[in-house]
Design a protein around this nucleic acid. Structure first.
Length: 438
RNA sequence: GCGGCUGUAGCUCAGUGGUAGAGCUCUCGGUUGUGGUCCGAGUGGUCGCGGGUUCAAGCCCCGUCAGUCGCCCCA
């Protein structure tokens, strides 16, 4: 026996057995069909972008994987300007700018692809993962209706995955930004970051951090907390609560109007599916208006957002001399899937997609078995032909192990009929291609 | 990037200084053309790696790498 190299799994780069991957594929199929039902069209962009493009929005703290060739001549720099994408929004902005003249606006697209981030992996934080993005980009002006459409699409997509109830939390950054301007709080990034953690560290934690880390006065903290603890799905309630703060700010009022519009538009959604939650601000990032986060209500192990996004005013301005406002949201498919898998919420599918295993009784009957399999496939069934005329016991065990629900026996001699066996019930009887109905 | 914990068979783990183990998985068998259960047999390990202490190290010490959890940040 020769020495084998024993590879270890690469942490942060998940790979699944067929029975698990099939579930992931079903999820992707479902999400895709919901996206398409709203008219989003698909694109794929390359795994790599120019580093210049990825960094265009200023310094990003996302850990980026750069590209290099092992055999590259040190003087050859042709690949060193490339890196793996860390999200799909930046490539979308580049794509839209590049194909501007050939696209129809508003440009509604979805993208289900992998992205890469070189961060320390944990459960629910991989280094290679799928994102399922929908975005709408328009020229100059993007109607607010699209801000309202995002949660509707996402609700449908996630509810179809059989993972319990979900709640989409919506806010508008302008409200908080306006308030911060009025209160003359300069350190917007730190302040929003802390407020964003309200869920995690609680009111007292936020109070402490705002006071110690940003140096905000007691009175201003009270106001900030009064704002960020507002939760309602009723636009009128929201208006009342916010006017009680007496903020004189155009930005603030604009955010309020926008958020009310979205709430009103989504009033058809079921109870609990959607809520305005003013603690949602989404850290720093490029968002300028509406922002979203999504929680799973029935999975206690899952506390972080599975799906977030928002509106951005000018993401493409680095690549084109036009104003292309957009709004988008992204399902963190791998995060969602891997956490649920880890906690036993994912029921593995059958190890094989096949409906029927075609038994191969003997080499003489191979042509018959193959032909029968082909006829069944033409009727839309998925059929695997067993590869060798081994003992029937072996062929059955194979079907059993792969969880193929039916086994088809071609006649062992010409006088006999075809037979079909239901592996679950054990029933077996004569059958013909024409009469088959599973 | 910072801190805690853990590395023994494909997987889950036991083994507290004296011959490397269990369960599950996997392969084969239990005679005619039929799976699961059951029974029997077998494969599989440089105990992460390197050094040190010791007559003797999977076990103790140092280093290192990897994994994992938390923080930062995020899908």
């Amino acid at each position: 026996m020769s020495k084998v190299y024993k590879p270890s799994p690469i942490s942060g780069f998940p790979e699944y057995l067929p029975e698990i991957r099939r579930v992931e594929q079903q999820w992707i199929d479902h999400i895709r069909s919901v996206f398409e039902s709203y008219g989003f069209c698909n694109i794929e962009t390359p795994a790599v972008e120019e580093i210049e493009v990825l960094m265009a929005k200023g310094e990003t703290d996302k850990e980026i994987y750069a590209l290099s060739r092992l055999q590259a001549d040190p003087k050859d720099k042709s690949d060193s300007r490339l890196a793996l994408r860390f999200d799909q929004t930046v490539p979308l902005a580049r794509y839209t700018a590049q194909h501007f003249n050939e696209l129809v606006f508003p440009f509604k697209r979805y993208q289900i692809q992998k992205v890469w981030r070189g961060e320390r992996p944990q459960i629910g934080r991989e280094r290679e993962f799928y994102q399922c993005d929908i975005d709408v980009l328009a020229v100059d002006n993007l109607p607010l209706h699209f801000d309202a459409e995002m949660p509707a699409v996402i609700y449908e997509a996630l509810m179809g995955l059989d993972i319990g109830n979900i709640q989409i939390k919506i806010s508008n950054r302008k409200i908080l930004i306006g308030l911060l301007q009025t209160l003359e709080i300069k350190d917007v990034i730190s302040t929003t970051r802390i407020i964003d953690k309200l869920d995690k560290i609680g009111e007292d934690g936020v109070r402490k951090s705002l006071s110690e880390e940003v140096g905000i006065s007691e009175q201003n903290i009270d106001t900030l907390l009064k704002l960020s603890t507002i939760k309602t799905r009723d636009a009128a309630v929201l208006k009342t609560a916010l006017s009680a703060l007496n903020v004189e700010s155009e930005v603030f009022n604009e955010g309020l109007e926008e958020l009310c519009f979205v709430l009103d538009y989504l009033s058809f959604m079921p109870d609990g599916a959607m809520i305005a939650d003013l603690s949602i601000v989404r850290g720093l990032d490029y968002y300028t208006g509406t922002v979203y986060e999504t929680n799973l209500l029935d999975i206690p192990e899952f506390t972080s957002s599975v799906c977030s996004g928002g509106r951005y005013d000018d993401l493409a301005s680095s690549y084109i001399n036009k104003k292309l406002p957009g709004v988008g949201i992204s399902i963190g498919l791998t995060r969602l899937f891997s956490v649920l898998l880890e906690n036993g919420y994912i029921k593995p599918a059958a190890k094989s997609p096949a409906d029927i295993l075609m038994v191969l009784p003997s080499e003489d009957k191979r042509a018959l078995a193959q032909q029968t399999a082909q006829q069944l496939r033409a009727k839309g069934y998925k059929v695997e032909l067993y590869h060798a005329p081994q003992k029937i016991k072996k062929q059955m065990a194979y079907a059993e192990k792969k969880a193929i629900p039916f086994v088809w026996f071609p006649p062992f001699d010409d006088a006999q009929p075809h037979e079909l066996k239901n592996m679950e019930t054990g029933e077996q009887g004569a059958i013909s291609v024409e009469s088959l109905k599973l």
